Amino acid sequence: MPEFAEEAEVTADAKRAVRVAVLARRRASTADQRATAAARVQAELVALVRRLRPRLVAAYVPVGTEPGGPDLPGVLAGALPAGARLLLPVLRDDLDLDWGAWTGPENLVAAGRGMREPAGPRLGMTAVAGAELVVVPAVAVDRRGLRLGRGGGSYDRALVRVPADTLTVVPLHDGELVDRLPAAPHDRAVRAVVTPTDGLRTLNGKPGVVPHTSAGRTGGQ
């Protein structure tokens, strides 16, 4: 087996091991613990949105034990200035992401991989490029900003379309910001995370990229 193939296999195995461990820990948490964590994460993101006043935000609908709670899109939409829009991902057959506009919880439909997505018109894969704030799901993130997803590669492809200076933020549970994750060359770094205890934290030595939020725990790495 060529050396590069062996390295790729080792990386995939290492990622799988971390993913299994983190998801097991999430499942072991109680509903009350998840609800408390979601409220804190939402408060941090709302404070950030109200400070940035973006005209376009891209986010997602958390499912199961994902941080932020299933009502996260509605909470974010309620914090946006008048006329601003919230985009949500639409999973394509090739596992890439299209995007649709949030128009309320009643217009969300079940989709592949447990996702819930907007039922309205598709806006194209490049719609995310215009967002001023992108809220990204992950299983874990390291202090370089590299994220571990579910393994489908959807957000690896979507983030390539997001300009490097766009603020990308990952909601996490406590303990899911780690020193270092196994990474592949195509992995794209995010710029900040939100955790219930530490709030909004910037990554990769860039303490100035996230404005201070009124939730009160913003800081660098």
Rank of each mutant, 00 (worst) to 15 (best):
A138E: 02
G205C: 12
S154D: 06
A164C: 10
V90W: 08
D32V: 13
H212Q: 15
A158W: 15
G100C: 09
V136W: 03
A5V: 12
A24T: 04
M115G: 06
Q33H: 04
R25C: 01
M125I: 14
L88I: 13
A24H: 09
L172Y: 01
A24W: 00
E9P: 03
R180N: 09
L56V: 14
P105F: 04
P70V: 07
Q42Y: 02
P105E: 11
R116S: 14
T103M: 04
G64L: 02
V139Y: 02
D98V: 00
A37F: 00
V141N: 00
T218G: 07
D187A: 05
T166I: 14
V178I: 02
A12N: 08
S29A: 03
D13Y: 01
P171W: 06
G74I: 06
G114F: 14
A17H: 04
G152P: 04
R188W: 10
A84C: 11
T65V: 04
P118L: 10
T213G: 15
V162T: 12
P67L: 04
V18C: 05
A189Q: 01
R144V: 02
K206V: 09
R26W: 01
A47H: 08
E7L: 10
A39C: 04
A215G: 01
R122F: 06
G152S: 05
H212P: 11
T11K: 11
V10P: 06
M115I: 11
G151T: 04
D13W: 05
D187W: 06
L203W: 00
A35E: 15
A59T: 04
E44I: 03
P182Y: 10
T218K: 00
G104L: 11
E6I: 12
G100V: 11
A164S: 15
A17T: 08
A5S: 13
G74R: 08
D71K: 05
D13L: 13
E9D: 04
G78P: 11
G112V: 10
R116G: 13
V160K: 15
L97Y: 14
R147M: 02
P137D: 07
A17P: 07
V210Q: 03
T65D: 01
L52E: 08
A183L: 04
Q42D: 09
V75N: 04
P81M: 15
A82H: 13
A84H: 08
G130M: 10
A129K: 12
L23Q: 05
G78C: 01
V178Y: 10
A84M: 09
V134G: 09
A127Y: 15
T213L: 10
W99P: 09
T36E: 14
T126V: 13
P54V: 00
G145Y: 02
G104M: 07
